[in-house]
C-alpha cells in the first residue's frame, strides 16, 4: 500500500505542476487522451508486472505489440479474414507465444532475459517478413472494431467529456489482474515463487506451471495491448511499431511497486506508474518552456527524483517508527 502512495504522490505532483504550467492540461479533450494512452500502456504494464513478480523479465512486449498490431490490419484488410476470427486468433497467438517463453524458461531452464530478448528479435523480424515490411492499416474501414481502441462513451452529466473505451478495457483487465494476483491461489503461488522459488517448490507448488502461466499472461496482455494500439492509431509500421514499449511497460511496473527481485507487486501501482509516464510525455508538449527534444531527459530526471524521494521518505518514516518503538 505504501508503495502505491508513493507513486500516487508522484502522479499528483506531476499533474499539479503541469496543470499550473499549462491551462490546457485539464481540458476534457486532453484528459481523455491521457486516459486512453494510460490505458494502452497500463495493459502492457500489468502484463509485465506478472512476469516481474516471478522475478523474471519480458523484453518481447514491444515486438509482441508490433506482431499483433500489424497482423490485425493485415489479416482483416489484406487477407480478408472476418473480425470474429482475427481477434481470437491474435489473442490466442500472443498467449501461446508467451506460454512458449514460459516453457523455454521453466523446462529448458533458459534465462528469461535471453528467451524474451530472442522473442524481441524474432517477432519483429517475423512481422516484417509477413507484411513485406509494408505499413498496414485499416484504410478508413472497420469503424465498429476500431471503437474498441478509439471509441468514447458519453457520460451523463459530463459535458464535453467522454470515457475512452480502452479505459474500460483497462479497468476490466486491472480488476481481473488484481483479483488474480491478490485473491486467487494461483496469485499467492506466484508471489511465493517470486519470493523464494526453491521454498515454493519444496512446499509442493508446481512452480513451473505458475511461472509458465505468468509468461503466458504477459504475452496475452501484450497482444491485447497491441490490438488496442493499432485500433487507436489506425495503421502500423512493422519496423517501428511498439519499439521500446517493453521499457515503458517495465518502467510502469517497477514504478508501481514491483520489485525486480520478485515477489511483490500492485496492479493499481502499475496503472499509476503508466499514468506518470504518459503525463510526463504530455507535459513536454503542453508546457511551453520545455523544448521537445529533451523529452527523455525530462522523463528520466523526474522518475529518478520521484523514486529517490520515495526511498528517502520511506527511510525517514521507518526511522521515526523505530525511534517511537525504542
Amino acid at each position: 500500500m505504501r508503495k502505491v502512495l508513493g507513486i500516487a504522490g508522484l502522479l499528483i505532483t506531476v499533474c499539479l505542476i503541469t496543470a499550473l504550467a499549462s491551462e490546457h492540461f485539464l481540458s476534457p479533450f486532453n484528459i481523455e487522451n491521457l486516459l486512453r494512452r494510460t490505458a494502452l500502456f497500463g495493459i502492457l504494464g500489468i502484463g509485465a508486472a506478472f512476469v516481474i513478480v516471478t522475478g523474471g523479465i519480458d523484453l518481447s512486449i514491444g515486438s509482441m505489440v508490433c506482431l499483433v498490431g500489424c497482423l490485425v490490419p493485415w489479416l482483416l484488410v489484406q487477407q480478408g479474414w472476418p473480425v470474429g476470427a482475427v481477434l481470437p486468433a491474435v489473442l490466442v497467438l500472443s498467449l501461446l507465444l508467451g506460454a512458449a517463453h514460459g516453457w523455454l524458461i521453466t523446462r529448458l531452464r533458459l534465462q528469461p532475459f535471453l528467451v524474451t530478448l530472442c522473442g524481441l528479435l524474432l517477432y519483429r523480424g517475423l512481422t516484417r517478413g509477413i507484411t513485406g515490411d509494408q505499413t498496414v492499416g485499416f484504410r478508413g474501414g472497420f469503424a465498429g472494431l476500431r471503437w474498441l481502441g478509439q471509441g468514447r462513451i458519453e457520460l451523463p452529466g459530463m459535458d464535453g467529456f467522454a470515457l475512452p473505451v480502452p479505459v474500460v478495457v483497462l479497468v476490466v483487465v486491472a480488476v481481473l489482474a488484481g483479483v488474480l494476483l491478490d485473491r486467487t491461489v494461483w496469485g499467492r503461488w506466484l508471489q511465493a515463487v517470486g519470493h523464494n522459488e526453491s521454498a515454493a517448490r519444496a512446499s509442493g507448488i508446481r512452480t513451473e506451471r505458475v511461472v509458465l502461466g505468468a509468461y503466458a499472461l504477459c504475452g496475452g496482455l501484450s497482444g491485447l495491448g497491441g490490438l488496442l494500439f493499432v485500433l487507436d492509431v489506425g495503421s502500423a509500421q512493422p519496423v517501428d511499431f511498439g519499439n521500446f514499449y517493453e521499457l515503458y511497460a517495465i518502467a510502469a511496473a517497477v514504478l508501481g511497486g514491483c520489485s525486480l527481485r520478485g515477489g511483490t507487486g500492485s496492479i493499481l501501482g502499475v496503472v499509476l506508474g503508466a499514468a506518470v509516464m504518459q503525463v510526463l510525455r504530455n507535459a513536454i508538449v503542453l508546457v511551453e518552456a520545455i523544448p521537445d527534444n529533451v523529452e527523455y531527459a525530462v522523463i528520466g530526471a523526474v522518475l529518478l527524483i520521484g523514486v529517490a524521494a520515495d526511498e528517502l521518505v520511506r527511510r525517514v518514516v521507518a526511522a521515526r517508527r523505530r525511534a517511537k518503538a525504542a
Binding site: 508471489q191 523464494n196 526453491s198 521454498a199 519444496a202 512446499s203 515477489g263
Partner: peptide, 21 residues
C-alpha cells in the same frame, strides 16, 4: 532460509502456503 521460507512474508502466509490449494 534458502529452501524453506518466504522470508519477507508473514508467518501466517508461510504456514498456509501448503494448504492454499
Amino acid at each position: 532460509k534458502a529452501d524453506g521460507l518466504l522470508l519477507p512474508c508473514g508467518t501466517d502466509d508461510n504456514l498456509s502456503l501448503t494448504t492454499l490449494a
